[in-house]
Every structure is written in structure tokens, then in C-alpha cells.
């Protein structure tokens, strides 16, 4: 029996002027899993995630969130189910970490109603989950890259989403901060049951944390499957054009990918 589908993409096409960036993509995201989208530069990964998160309107096709067309839902109602973390989060704002996380509760506030205690509880929870409780009074733009990324994640989970989309959450971070973010995302999935869809550059991170890998090439989905299936096949060879060696990580039983040379 098939699991619950939380998000579905049907016949999605996006073009900029005459260039097709996304070419008729179909994709189903099952509840509770971690998906990683990988693929070479310019294959359309970021555009796909931006379209799934309603930032870009597609020329053709639809995105469904729990069965409803995402572009027809009220944006506040989308925000209560789905949170997004984009790649560049430069901001003019000089909000503190706590204020930023409070903004994550925006969708739940109407003019006068909305429980203050409830919000405070959830903001505290989000800060704790991301281990930012001690940083809550700092201004976001004074934080280091890793801390700042955690602050944005805290804001996203304060939305209490069922699904979290992330576009290269570890770019520009050093290795320990990369791992810290990946572990945080995994915890959110395992402990809170949040479905994760993220674009990643690092194939090994993708293979280690994902339940399913989605490989994109030339603006289409080339293949989708669990990490072993994807890495052991010739998929990566033809998509990334590299000769690679696959080994097994003895601790996690996940495949490790080592690119040896360009072909």
C-alpha cells in the first residue's frame, strides 16, 4: 500500500523567456520521508524547489499540497503546512533571533486573535530545537553563517509545518556546521515527523540522510530511488559525467561516493 502523499507535482514546466528550466516534471512526495534533489549545475533543481514553494509560477502544470492546488490556496494557509528555506537570506532587517522566529508565527495571527501563550511556547520550542536559546537576544546579522542558518530554520519550524523545503541549506558553511545543519534537519524529520525536501550539492550528504534521492538532468527528473539504487547504478556516471567509486560506510550502512575522474 502506498503511503500518504503530502505534495504532488504534475506536468510542471517553467521557462524564462524561451529557455525551459523545468520540463514537464511529475513528482510525488510521501509524508514523513527525507528527499534530496541532486544534479549538476543548471539542471533546474533550484527552480523546481522555488516552484514547489510557490515563489515561481509555472507556465504549465500544477503543484498540489495535501491535494489542493498551491497557487489557489491562501498563502497564509500554505504557510501553516509548508515552510521554506531559500539559499540567500540577506536582509535589511535588524531583527533579533527571537523576533525572527516570532515572524514564523505570522500565519497564525489574525488582526486581534491568536494566542500569545501558544506563540511563546512554540517560539521557545523552535529556539530549543535549533539550540539557539542562548542566542535569542542577538541580532541575526551579527551571527556566524551556521548560527544564522539555524535561526532561519527556527523561524521555519515555528510555522509548525508538515513539510519543509530547503534550497542548499549547507552552502557556504564549513564542514562541522554543515553536519550540524544536516543533523538538525534529520532530527526534525525523525522527532517531529516533518517531511523534508531539499536540494543538496554534496552527494554523500544526500546519500547519507535521504530516504530517497531525486536526480535531475537537463531540466527533467532523470531517476528517483533510494540511495543504494541511485549510487550503484550508472546514473551518476551519466548525469555528473564522472568515474566514481562507491563504498559502504560501516557505521550508517549508507553508500559513499568518491569521484575519481571526469569522463
Amino acid at each position: 500500500m502506498k503511503n500518504d502523499i503530502i505534495m504532488e507535482v504534475k506536468g510542471l514546466s517553467v521557462s524564462y523567456k524561451d529557455n525551459k528550466v523545468i520540463d514537464c516534471i511529475d513528482l510525488a512526495i510521501e509524508k514523513g520521508k527525507i528527499y534530496c534533489i541532486i544534479g549538476p549545475n543548471g539542471c533546474g533543481k533550484t527552480t523546481l524547489i522555488r516552484t514547489m514553494s510557490r515563489s515561481i509560477k509555472p507556465q504549465e502544470g500544477h503543484v498540489f499540497l495535501s491535494g489542493s492546488n498551491i497557487f489557489k490556496l491562501k498563502t497564509k494557509n500554505v504557510a501553516k503546512k509548508m515552510a521554506v528555506l531559500y539559499q540567500s537570506n540577506a536582509t535589511l532587517s535588524d531583527a533579533t533571533v527571537r523576533e525572527l522566529v516570532q515572524y514564523g508565527r505570522f500565519a497564525y495571527k489574525e488582526w486581534w486573535k491568536g494566542s500569545y501563550e501558544e506563540d511563546t511556547k512554540i517560539v521557545d520550542w523552535a529556539l530549543e530545537k535549533t539550540r539557539l536559546t542562548d542566542f535569542q537576544k542577538r541580532k541575526v546579522n551579527t551571527l556566524s553563517g551556521g548560527e544564522r542558518q539555524r535561526a532561519w530554520i527556527a523561524m521555519a519550524i515555528a510555522q509548525k509545518p508538515e513539510i519543509l523545503l530547503l534550497d542548499e541549506p549547507t552552502t557556504y558553511l564549513d564542514i562541522s556546521h554543515q553536519l550540524e545543519i544536516m543533523e538538525l534537519i534529520e532530527r526534525l524529520n525523525k522527532e517531529e515527523g516533518i517531511t523534508i525536501v531539499m536540494v543538496l550539492h554534496d552527494i554523500n550528504h544526500a546519500a547519507r540522510y535521504a530516504d530517497e534521492l531525486i536526480v535531475m538532468k537537463d531540466h527533467k527528473i532523470f531517476k528517483k530511488g533510494d540511495p543504494w539504487t541511485i549510487l550503484e547504478s550508472d546514473v551518476l556516471k551519466s548525469v555528473f559525467r564522472v568515474e566514481a567509486q562507491i563504498t559502504k560506510d560501516m557505521d550508517t550502512n549508507k553508500p559513499i561516493f568518491y569521484a575519481k575522474k571526469v569522463i
Binding site: S53, R54, S55, A79, A83, N89, T91, S93, A95, Q159
Partner: peptide, 11 residues
């Protein structure tokens, strides 16, 4: 002022 994408993301 958090940016269009972020603002849309939080509703």
C-alpha cells in the same frame, strides 16, 4: 523587508 521569498514563505 526579510525579502519576498521569505515573506511569502511565512504567509
Amino acid at each position: 523587508i526579510l525579502g519576498d521569498d521569505v515573506a511569502r514563505g511565512i504567509g
